[in-house]
Nucleic acid binder design. Sequence first.
DNA 1: TGTACATCAGTGAACGCGCGTTCACTGATGTAC
DNA 2: TGTACATCAGTGAACGCGCGTTCACTGATGTAC
Lengths: 218, 218
Amino acid sequence: MAQAGTVDRILDTAEVLFAQKGFAETSLRAITSKAGVNLAAVNYHFGSKEALIQAVFERFLTPFSLALDAKLDEMEASGIPDTPENVLGIVFRLALGTHPDDPQRAAIFFRLSGQAYSQPQGHLREYLHTHYGAVFARLQLHLHQAVPGVPPMELFWRVQFSLGAVIFTLSGMQSLQSISKADFNMDASTADITKRLLPFLVGGIQAEVPDQPLHKDK
Amino acid sequence: MAQAGTVDRILDTAEVLFAQKGFAETSLRAITSKAGVNLAAVNYHFGSKEALIQAVFERFLTPFSLALDAKLDEMEASGIPDTPENVLGIVFRLALGTHPDDPQRAAIFFRLSGQAYSQPQGHLREYLHTHYGAVFARLQLHLHQAVPGVPPMELFWRVQFSLGAVIFTLSGMQSLQSISKADFNMDASTADITKRLLPFLVGGIQAEVPDQPLHKDK
DNA sequence: TGTACATCAGTGAACGCGCGTTCACTGATGTAC
DNA sequence: TGTACATCAGTGAACGCGCGTTCACTGATGTAC
C-alpha cells in the first residue's frame, strides 16, 4: 500500500482523518500532505471534497453491506433466533472487522454512518438510502422481530439513540480515555468500549414502552 | 429583552445559534448580524470567540446547577428513592425547563454539555469541572445508588453513552424529524423525543453487567 | 460654572490566514498514418 | 520506422472567500480643579 496509486492513497488517508476529526474539520491540505500527493489531485480525481467524502463512503460501505447481507443469510439459514444481542452483535463484529484491536476501524464505520444522518444537506443521505437502504431495512426488520413489543416508530428512535451513543462515544474517545484514565486509572480500548456498549444498547432497545399516551392526547 | 444591552443580546443570540449549529459552525458574523450589534463588539466585550462560548456556558449552567442541587436536596429530604427513572427524570425536567414545548431549550442544554466533552482542547472541560464538578459528582452518586449492581467505571461509560444518545439525537433533530415524517407520517417534538429517551436510557443504564472478563484476561 | 481630561461603549474598515477550487502547464504514454 | 497529435495523470501557483481578530477612531458620560 506504500506504492499504491494516487487515488487509493487519497482514499486511505482521507478515511483515517475523517474518522479521527470529522469531515468539516479535515482539510484537503491535511489529506494531501499526509498522503504525499499534490493538493490539486483531489479535485482532479474526485471533482470536489464532497465527492471525495462520497467515495470514501462507497469504498467502505459496499463490502460492509455485502458482508452484512451474507451474515443475515447465514443467520436465517441456521435458525439462529432474532435477539437484540444477536442482531446488534453481528453489526458490531462486522464494524470491528477482522482486526478487533484496531482502534480506527469501528470509529470509521460508525462515524461515517453518523455523519450521513447529521449532514444538513440531504444529498449524502439520499445517496446512502439509494445504495444501502435495502440492507438497512433488512437489519431493522430483524431487530423488529427481536423486540416485537416495541412499535416500529419507537424502534426507529431507539436505533437513532443507539447510533448516537456509539458515535458520540467513539468521536470523543481521546478525551474520554484521558478522563477514564484519570478517574479510574484504567485504559479503555475501542474493543473494550464496544463490549460495554452492547449490553447498554440491548437494555435500551428492549426496554418496556410506557403505554400512556405520549403527550396531551387526552 | 428587545432593548437589552449589547452583552445580553450577544449572549441570547449566541446561545440559540450555538445550539442549532454547533460552535465551530457558528460564525461571529452570524451572531452579531442576527443580534443587531457590531462585529467587533464580541471581541470588545468578551475578548475572543472562545471566551464568548465560556460565557454562554456560565450563564446557562449556573442556574441549572443551582436548581439541580436544590432538586437533589428536595429528593433526599422527602425520601424519594434513588431509581434511574427518578434521577434521570430530574435532569430531563430541568433541561426542558419551565417550557417543555420549547424545542430549543433541551437542545441548548445537552448540546452545550456534549461540546464540553468532545472539545479536543481541555480548557473548556477543565473550566466546567472546576465550576460544576461537585454537582455532577453528586448526580453520579445518586445514579450509583440507583443501580448498585453496576460498577462505577461501567456506570461512567453508560453515562457517556446516554449523553451521546441525547446529544446526537437533538443535534440531528431537523434531519431526523424529516425522516420520521417521511417514514411514519408523524411529527416529533423535542418533548416527545425526550419522553422516548427516558425509558431507553433507563433500560441501558440498569442493564445487567456481563460477568465474564472483558478482554483476553485468560 | 466652565474647562480640560479620562473613561468607556461602540464602530467601520482592514488585516492575515486557511480554506476549497481553478487554471495554465508539464511530461509520459498511446494512437493514427 | 518515424512523425504528428491526442489523451491523461499530475503539478505549482494563484484565486476568491469567509473567518476571527485588530486598530484607529467617534461620541457620550463622568471627574478634577
